[in-house]
Design a protein around this nucleic acid. Structure first.
Lengths: 195, 195
DNA sequence: GATTGCCTGCCTACTAGTAGGTAGATAGCA
DNA sequence: TGCTATCTACCTACTAGTAGGCAGGCAATC
């Protein structure tokens, strides 16, 4: 079960943290090389081109995210809890600076100049996240936990925008607490008043 | 009144559109050079370093934004109208792709690796925008136009996040209409119900 | 059981091209 | 004259990517 990370996994890990810090054009093979103590050419052995590296990276991120969200829906007690766990995941990441930004949110900003194979995967992540949020909101309405002003799909888009915007504000203003301060009220207003 | 744009203005204009497209690391002096038909070295005459160019650019953007928001507060009839005009400005920019993203939102993502003189100005823009939104919301409450769940400063942060997140979603999903679909309901829910 | 050949992972050494930036000449203008 | 804006020509450092080699593992063959 416990296995040491393969070189290609290490490359992806480092690349991911570099992208989170500075985007697609914000890192080079030389940066990765220095970070994991391997020659530049060896990275090309695993990932022939930068576009391919990032495409694989986003694909991996997409799958991890989908799996995580899926298991959240299976395990967390209620739709409200599912939402709570989701935002809390990011709250923790941002607070301890382990991954203070979503890779896909980062790349979404650079969409216009991303290689196609990367751009399409970033788009897929946004669609997947919106779909998950829609399902959770729908379930919450059915169970009488949420009351929405708008259709679940629209409310999901609003929530997703709120999360990504809050990440941006937290980063711009250098205030990790801002993330939860923005997102928490956005969620709690969906809940039907306790009686 | 009508004056042809100076070379340094043209440089800033092009640089701004390039940053909007690809961020700080997404453009080079060569790109600007090609776009306005001037040699690379001539750009260095106007802006010795890239960091300085972008710092001046963000400063200019900050001042333009502040001036625009200020005059909006003086001219627009009501706080609700002021908010309406603000989001409509971006709605138009995004729809006709003239400036489909806020420079500072773009740069905020790259905050960690931005030169200090740029980062501080990006932060200033976020603070300025939040302050403006706070003032508008406060005025709206005083005039009985808005009813807020939270303190105006918090509500302003939520609104700002929503706007930036909506820009990101619109870009990621390639759907300009998504911006207003997300932001409009976020604003209309602040208004007290008509009676 | 040794030999053969292939595969993986990494290496050194290199390429062409681009990055930001500089030095110094020139042309026009006050 | 001196200033401003531009130019040509160049620099160094770095970019993504390539060529070719080499050590070790694995597996089929003799």
């Amino acid at each position: 079960m416990k296995s040491i990370a393969s070189t290609s996994d290490k490359i992806l890990d480092i690349a991911q943290s570099l992208i989170v810090a500075g985007g697609y054009n914000g890192f080079s093979y030389a940066d990765i090389s220095a970070a994991i103590g391997i020659r530049k050419a060896s990275i090309h052995h695993h990932f022939p081109t930068k576009a391919e590296l990032v495409a694989v990276l986003v694909e991996r991120y997409f799958k991890q995210a989908q799996a995580g969200l899926q298991s959240l829906r299976e395990q967390a007690a209620s739709p409200a809890d599912q939402l709570h766990f989701y935002v809390n995941y990011w709250h923790t990441c941002i607070r301890d600076a382990s991954q203070p930004f979503c890779v896909c949110a980062m790349l979404a900003g650079e969409m216009q100049m991303l290689p196609d194979e990367v751009a399409s995967r970033v788009r897929a992540h946004f669609q997947g996240l919106a779909a998950w949020l829609t399902l959770v909101l729908q379930a919450g309405v059915e169970q009488g936990q949420f009351r929405l002003d708008k259709r679940p799909e629209e409310q999901a888009q609003m929530l997703m925008a709120s999360v990504h915007g809050a990440m941006l504000s937290a980063r711009a203003l250098g205030d990790p607490g801002l993330f939860i301060a923005v997102v928490a009220p956005e969620i709690s207003r969906l809940r039907v008043p306790a009686r």
